[in-house]
Amino acid sequence: MNWRDLIRWERMPHILCPGCGNGTILNVLVRALAEKFEAGELDPDRTVLVSGIGCSSRLPGYVRLDSLHTTHGRPLAFATGLKLANPDLEIIVLTGDGDAAAIGGNHLIHAARRNLDVTVICSNNLIYGMTGGQVSPTTPEGAKSTTTPYGNPEPPFDLCELVMGAGAPHVERWTTAHPQQLKRAIHRALERDGFSFIDVLSQCPTNYGRRNDLKSPREMLEWLRENTSTKDEPGKIRIGILRDEERKPFHERVHELIEEVSGDEEGG
């Protein structure tokens, strides 16, 4: 399958700003999915995109698959119902830092704890972009936003540490300056059973860069490339595969229990 068959072209061009990192994530995602469909590893009719609210959550509306654009912070709770009710569905959750870590923080840690079998792609652009650039739970300390005009007094969340602490078995961090690596990460996440979390450091030139001395999308990607490393280097953000383990996914445990109980009922 060609990735072009997965785009709702009648909706293009999309609503994202020039140089938005979410566009690169959409680009990489549809190519990764097309490769999986082409290889017969996934069925497009059984692949579902679920998202919350925010710029990143608009992406499913451009992809020609079943998709559910839900409420702010709650896509993982909706995905829990979808996956348990039909375990044959392959579910990809598209979310952002505000959606996943602020209003949806509780759903995030519980989905990780349960080991819900979903691929979470979190576009982490350090800001609330859709509403015009307010501080988020991942905004760096000291950074400017429309609600931290004197600099952010709060320390940020490390989303990977957060979900690993909650039990997520497969966790990676990449950036929109690493699209090739991100595509391979999405492939791995789709192959893993259980909760896969990809933290994608992304750029919001309009509402973050502009207020924090990063004047263009290119400068922002330059920053992401220079300040990240696949090795533990002082002063740099660690990217790469941070955890890759196996743990029985939630739906399997639930459905084994159902088999056991309903089998007993029929037998007894």
């Binding site: 680009n27 990489v28 929109t176």
Partner: peptide, 10 residues
């Protein structure tokens, strides 16, 4: 193909 993959506007 790096330009192709990074393009936010496909």
């Amino acid at each position: 193909r790096q330009c192709e993959l990074i393009c936010p506007d496909l």
